[in-house]
Amino acid sequence: MNIFRLLGDLSHLLAIIILLLKIWKTRSCAGISGKSQILFAIVYTTRYLDLFTTFISAYNTFMKIIFIATSLATVFLMYVKFKATYDHNHDTFRIEFLILPAFVLALLINHELSPVEVLWTFSIYLESVAILPQLFLVSKTGEAESITSHYLFALGSYRGLYLFNWIYRYYAEDHYDLIAIVAGLVQTVLYCDFFYLYITKVLKGKKLQLPA
């Protein structure tokens, strides 16, 4: 464990808390893509299957359980409890266009052709693009509430911080995992446009509004 990884995990946890609090306090999931949340729920449930086979640390197990539970809880809040507030007219991204290619790629490029390993790889590939429906929703409505922007910033920072963790581990531990690194790079790059808008607008107190 190094500082980048810890900050990355905390940033990820913060993003989830921001999102759940936003939905709970406002009793609304307006502006949030249910499609992205479904993808995240698939990502964590397929990645953390090793909960049953491998023990790494209490921290690792605890975080995995939290990520699975909160992603499922978010989907439940959006599609059951606060269904009436869900923006389904704007949330039209076809997630099968992300799920199927991620799965095929995981079958082709992986560390080992075993079910658990292929599912881990699939989850890494899928996570890298899972935010696309959310970014698509923001671009369709042309704006995002500040709280949604904070959520996106924390969520984007998480994989960005992991990139530093991987650089650190490469030098300090001689450890690297190309699949995670390349997917993490793609994932972070997808947020760059949003990061720019967040820093130039949201941090200066303005609403995130896209040019018409």
């Binding site: 995990d9 090793d50 086979t53 990520f67 560390h111 080992e112 881990w120 450890h175 995992d177």
Partner: peptide
Amino acid sequence: TIFEAPHDEL
């Protein structure tokens, strides 16, 4: 070492 299972990151 290049990657070795298990995956120890989140």
